[in-house]
Design a protein around this nucleic acid. Structure first.
Length: 249
DNA sequence: TCATTAAATTGTT
DNA sequence: AACAATTTAATGA
């Protein structure tokens, strides 16, 4: 069993490594709220920040564990789910949401200082950052701009969950896949997602609540409609607007 | 760097 | 759920 992530690695090395990689490749680790802070705040965050690489299948935080960090995905893809072990009577694990690059999460748990209620697991090799609950709360008590970021994050996510209910009840399987995919490309919540989302059809099935076979058929339909292109191990979005308002025949 | 092999993922029944 | 086909990743010369 993979144990807790974010060990006491040399964070300075990890941070500078991820920075130089960002500077070199241009598109990688960007922390959207970091440039909203003043110098003092940024200094404390950088001293506190941990950046680690997690392997596919590794669990970032486990149900029932005490709060330690507020997390962000710098690169890769995580999922928030419950285990089939206890809880749901279905044979299938339920994925509540995917967290792609640019997503930050856990603020609800940190605010309430209660144990994690879900498992957060890496779907692919991912780069995950975290700041301690103490620093997160310190920022909340100090920086208006940081509060705005968190509030916006909460508001957007609330909208996503409401949309998810709607998707569950109203739409055709193909449309569910389309709109769930569109949600993962949400530009405010997940600015780090490029045009290609690396996710297997199996995981997409867990996310949408369909079998892998049905997801496969849906993706073929979406491809024929010209809104996505199916690639090995991922999906390329050709038209986000087309995905959002896709209608099955 | 290239060829071979294993593993992962997809497409279909 | 099972199977074959395809793609990627890993290995070693």
């Amino acid at each position: 069993m993979p144990t807790h992530v974010l060990p006491s690695t040399s964070q300075a090395a990890a941070v500078s490594a991820s920075r130089s990689r960002a500077a070199a490749s241009g598109d990688l680790p960007h922390i959207p709220w970091l440039d909203r802070l003043d110098d003092l705040e940024r200094a404390r965050v950088l001293a506190d920040l941990r950046v680690v690489t997690v392997q596919p299948g590794e669990i970032v935080c486990r149900m029932g564990r005490p709060v330690t960090y507020w997390f962000g995905v710098l690169d890769g893809l995580l999922k928030m789910s419950n285990d089939s072990a206890q809880g749901n009577g279905l044979g299938m694990p339920i994925t509540f949401t995917g967290v792609p690059s640019g997503g930050w999460f856990g603020e609800g748990t940190v605010l309430k200082m209660e144990p994690y209620r879900y498992n957060i697991q890496a779907l692919r090799k991912s780069v995950v950052a975290g700041i301690t609950a103490e620093t997160f709360l310190w920022l909340l008590g100090r920086s208006i701009r940081f509060n705005r970021f968190v509030m916006n994050q909460l508001n957007e996510r609330l909208g996503q969950f409401i949309a998810a209910r709607e998707i569950d009840r109203l739409t055709h399987p193909d449309e569910r896949v389309a709109r769930s995919l569109a949600a993962l490309f949400h530009p405010v919540l997940y600015p780090g997602v490029g045009e290609v989302l690396r996710i297997t059809q199996q995981e997409l099935g867990y996310l949408v609540g369909l079998s892998r076979q049905r997801v496969n058929r849906a993706l073929v339909a979406l491809q024929q409609a010209g809104v996505v292109r199916v690639e090995y191990g991922g999906v390329r979005v050709l038209s986000l607007g087309g995905l959002r308002c896709y209608r099955a025949d």
